[in-house]
Design a protein around this nucleic acid. Structure first.
Length: 956
RNA sequence: GCACGGAUAGCUCAGUGGUAGAGCGGCUCGUUUACACCGAGUUGGUCGGGGGUUCGAAUCCCUCUCCGUGUACCA
């Protein structure tokens, strides 16, 4: 057996093994190897931001994925863990823009222009991108790096474009002027999911306005946003509100801007709640979603008083123009005060939408954006509702279902430059439809290249004035030739061409002066295609055939709508199948005080520093141990320390084995098995079964708890110590047999641990020589391909002569040891000392030797007839009475006190159980089994009590 | 507002009707040839409050409080 160094150096071993795994292509999946006997197992990584760095959240998430993948390999599956990164449009552009500004390269992105800035971002990506990939390697992630993807790769870009055009053609994607969530900091629209509602402590301002037609009548309006008064184009009251309904149709004088105190109508609208505020609502259609809708119903004018960056513009009036919106609010209140219109301001709590990314309140803003009506909704909703796709924990299924039931169209356009540009070219004509058709079909004729075979016609779509037209010149020509006076009517006509084809794009640009839409797509519009776009879609690749649908998805619940739900819909729409079978939602990592990890709080430890001080294995084990299914994780560095300690224990226990010498033993002789051997083999069986079940049910913290208990508390604390009775003896045959048991247990243990602790288990697997004599692909090359342990089955247990009650026998011995050690400790004996055992039945010499070693007794006398001197401390054990003769050191009082305590306990327990058994209500109604248990308990306590009393009287 | 999670030892959590558990921490010992990143012993809880069902409740039912998450919102 090779020699292990005295101490383990994780940094060196982890580096070395990871490189070796890469060199040996251990992580690379091959669809050709997939067969009925070798099923596929696949996971796509939730792509981290390409410019991001590793956080504890990533550690948690990726450790889980790695555990699943490594176990799948050990189960003999062909495993694909597909990694990659996300271009993270807004975030990445922000980072680069900020940096360039800091460096003084630019003041504004317009200084560079679109192309140059995108170039700069690519440069940034090449330089800083992918740091997180290197960090994942440090963690031990067994991803197939040969398949690494980026959502902005050329291939991937083509997928995004194709999907866009296809959905456009199907009418799922449209452009529209709508109220959207506008981020005044990033200067882009956001989807509803990117807006976080936060409770605010603000003010409700009450101000009065005069009714134009009845100068004596004043109305009081309550608002939280007085700065938008210049944008008011009506006030609304509920038509059923007796107080105000007679005023509907009249006007009020809008107080701001001072230079334009216009008369605006009073309208009746059911939306107004008469209970709330004053029952009079100011209507600002440009700056509030509900107001916009009221405006639509009553055909109100729309006055936008804000610049895109939320600075008030000239329409807000001279007093407010140029002020930032919150400054504007203060100023507006002042103005109302000055004109004595302000009645009161009272503290008011309301919810305000914040841009998740920029952390500033969003501004409802009317703008032209691209929207997606979600496809494949019923199938996507059903698959989860019917349990064909499983969520862990399953309560997320309800959350998902609820969201799917109330889908709003997805705003997919973003006003930034780093991203997939909307593949739509537009031109606005003032012409007749015939002229327009003529130009369009003319350009189409220039498109002489036939479409590649296998691709459908979905790559060109034409929309004229909102109506879909056939995308070929012949059909267009036919329409153009129709006898229809409408075709000759001169008017405004907008033409949209959506296409993935470069030739068509350039023809429309150069021949007809079409321009491409400036917007890019929401990053999630690319990542929702991740499970198949990464595998070569739209081609029917071997990867897709073998690995789609993927098996498991591991992600955080915070992106259940952003990503998970959308991937399911894209999966059905483009693959006709669910993208994954199981979704595991991790918890959120919090600090010890329960706060979320955040940069500003500085409570987020750097995982790489943790790896440097404790090792990747330690970090993995620590975080898995503290991550119960469905609950947030309170992160405590102590857990990582514990992980490191555990690795050290594993190392030292292995060294202990190796110091016993000999080669790896494989033959266990049933007739030489001791009670301890049988016990540990049974405990190993239990551990294997528990860990296996826990992993099948995604209960990772339970799996680690079992591993910890088994290895530390059972194997090291009891079995190794007990085995010393043999190993320190002279019987070579028994020694070899004990070593065989140890090797069997350690070999299984290392394999059980491998998914959690990939590095140290690999190091020990080789260091202990367990890889020797194994086929290359069965653990010879790497423990990661060694078979996952199986419990001994009934036949094997029979062969070894192991019976279930063997576990009890050893447990009784260990209980006796505990009691003996307790005696020593309560009498403050710290040295080796003599024990005397009065056995209740005869014990084999070997058992006595084990007892002696575990008790650290010198000597251990066994004497059934032993008459202890008065005052000798003793304990009742399942093996008999253990006495601790203390020549000349007898402390009768101490012993009396100790026994009294135990007697009290026995008495009270006896009383409890007797009371129960005396209760007829109890005995009449309880099942026989429970009754028997109670009777047994009564007998046990009675016996214990009698013996304790005997001991007491022996004290004198 | 609605929905869902959670409240058990100082901390993190197991425990779904039958004698309240684990790990960590605390405390006391200990250089016994694998390990002080260790070993041995020991101390910690009217199971969030109240009510109910039951012979029996941490566990089932009702109710309240607090924490968290999602979701909908009224200016």
């Amino acid at each position: 057996m090779p020699e292990l160094p005295k101490t383990y150096t994780p940094s060196e071993a982890e580096e070395r093994w990871y490189q070796r795994w890469l060199d040996d292509k251990c992580f690379e999946a091959d669809p050709a190897r997939v067969s009925e006997k070798r099923p596929a197992y696949s996971i796509v990584i939730p792509p981290p931001n390409v410019t991001g760095i590793l956080t504890l959240g990533h550690v948690l998430n990726n450790t889980i994925q790695d555990i699943l993948c490594r176990r799948a390999r050990m189960l003999g599956k062909e495993v694909l863990w597909l990694p990659g990164t996300d271009h993270a449009g807004i975030a990445t552009q922000n980072v680069v823009e900020k940096t360039l500004k800091k460096q003084g390269v630019i003041k504004h992105r317009d200084d560079l222009g679109r192309e140059k800035l995108v170039e700069k971002i690519w440069e940034w990506k090449e330089k800083h991108g992918g740091i997180i990939i290197q960090q994942l390697k440090k963690l031990g992630a067994s991803c197939d790096w040969s398949r690494e993807r980026f959502t902005f790769d050329d291939d991937y870009n083509r997928c995004v474009m194709q999907v866009f055009v296809d959905l456009y053609k199907k009418g799922h994607i449209y452009r529209g002027k709508r109220m959207v969530n506008w981020c005044p900091s990033s200067l882009t629209a956001l989807s509803d999911e990117e807006v976080e509602m936060k409770q605010q402590n603000g003010f409700m301002y009450h101000f009065k306005v005069q009714v134009v037609e009845e100068p004596d009548t004043w109305l009081t309006i309550a608002t939280t946003r007085p700065e938008t008064i210049p944008g008011d184009t009506a006030v609304a009251v509920n038509p059923n509100d007796e107080r105000y309904k007679h005023l509907i149709g009249k006007h009020i004088r809008r107080p701001l801007p001072l230079e334009n105190q216009a008369a605006i109508p009073i309208v009746g609208d059911e939306h107004v709640d008469f209970e709330f505020g004053t029952g009079v609502l100011k209507v600002t259609p440009a700056h509030d979603k509900a107001d916009f809708e009221i405006g639509q119903r009553h055909h109100l004018e729309i006055i936008d008083v804000l610049h895109p960056n939320a600075v008030l513009n000239d329409l807000a009036g001279a007093d407010l123009a140029g002020l930032e919106r919150f400054e504007g609010r203060k100023k507006a209140v002042e103005l109302l005060k000055e004109m004595e219109a302000l009645i009161k301001e009272e503290p008011h709590q309301n919810n305000v939408g914040y841009s998740e990314r920029a952390g500033v309140p969003i501004e409802p803003r009317l703008s032209e954006q691209w929207f997606l009506k979600y496809p494949s909704v019923p199938a996507s909703q059903d698959v989860v509702a019917k349990g064909e796709m499983k969520f862990y924990p399953d309560r997320w299924a309800k959350v998902y279902d609820h969201w799917m039931g109330g889908l709003q169209d997805w705003c997919i356009s973003r006003q930034v430059w780093w991203g997939h540009r909307v593949p739509v070219w537009t031109k606005r004509y003032t012409a007749s439809l015939r002229e327009v058709l003529s130009e369009v079909s003319g350009v189409m004729v220039q498109d002489i290249h036939p479409q590649p075979s296998g691709s459908d016609s979905s790559d060109i779509a034409i929309l004229i004035d909102g109506n879909s037209y056939p995308a070929d010149s012949a059909s267009l020509y036919e329409i153009e030739q129709k006898e229809d006076p409408l075709l000759d009517e001169q008017r405004e006509i907008e033409v949209q061409i959506a296409t993935t084809r470069l030739d068509v794009q350039s023809n429309f640009e150069s021949l007809a002066g079409f321009t491409q839409d400036p917007d890019v797509l929401d990053t999630w519009f690319s990542s929702w295609l991740w499970p198949f776009a990464t595998m070569g879609w739209p081609n029917k690749t071997d990867d897709l055939k073998a690995f789609y649908p993927t098996t498991d998805l591991v992600t955080g619940p915070d992106i259940i709508f952003f990503w998970v739900a959308r991937m399911i819909m894209a999966g059905y729409e483009y693959m006709g199948e669910m993208p994954f079978k199981n979704v595991y939602f991790t918890g959120i990592i919090r600090d010890k005080q329960g706060r979320k990890m955040s940069k500003s709080l500085g409570n987020s430890p750097d995982p790489l520093e943790l790896i440097a001080s404790y090792s990747a294995d330690a970090l993995r084990f620590g975080i898995m141990r503290s991550a119960p299914l469905g609950q947030d994780i309170a992160f405590d560095e102590k857990n990582v320390e514990l992980g490191r300690n555990f690795c050290t224990k594993l190392w030292n226990a292995s060294r202990f084995r190796q110091m016993q010498g000999g080669s790896t033993e494989t033959e266990i002789s049933p007739e030489l098995l001791s009670s301890d051997d049988k016990w540990i083999l049974l405990r190993l069986n239990t551990a294997i079964a528990e860990v296996t079940t826990a992993l099948e049910e995604y209960r990772f913290s339970d799996a680690t708890a079992t591993l910890y208990r088994f290895f530390w508390s059972e194997y090291c604390d009891w079995y190794v110590e007990a085995s010393k009775a043999v190993l320190q003896g002279t019987d070579e045959k028994r020694k070899a047999n004990t070593l065989a048991v140890i090797d069997f247990v350690l070999g299984n243990t290392l394999r059980l641990f491998h998914p959690f602790l990939p590095f140290i288990t690999e190091e020990l697997w080789h260091g202990m020589g367990f890889n020797e004599d194994l086929p290359e692909n069965q653990g010879g090359k790497s423990i990661m391909f060694a078979p996952w342990p199986k419990p001994l089955d009934a036949d094997e247990l029979a062969y070894f002569g192991i019976l279930p009650e063997d576990e009890k026998a050893a447990n009784e011995k260990y209980e006796a040891v505990n009691l003996g050690r307790g005696l020593k400790s309560s009498f403050n004996i710290t040295k080796k000392v003599r024990f005397v055992l009065k056995p209740s039945s005869e014990l084999p010499a070997h058992e006595i030797e084990v007892l002696r070693i575990l008790l650290n007794a010198e000597p251990l006398d066994v004497d059934a007839a032993y008459a202890a001197p008065k005052g000798t401390p003793s304990a009742l054990t399942p093996l008999g009475t253990i006495c601790l003769p203390l020549d000349g050191l007898i402390d009768v009082e101490a012993e009396r006190a100790r026994i009294t305590k135990e007697l009290d306990k026995a008495n009270s327990e006896l009383q409890k159980v007797c009371a129960k058994l005396a209760d007829e209500n109890f005995t009449a109604k309880v099942p026989q089994k429970v009754l028997d248990e109670h009777q047994q308990r009564k007998a046990d306590w009675k016996e214990k009590k009698a013996k304790l009393e005997e001991m007491m009287s022996a004290l004198g």
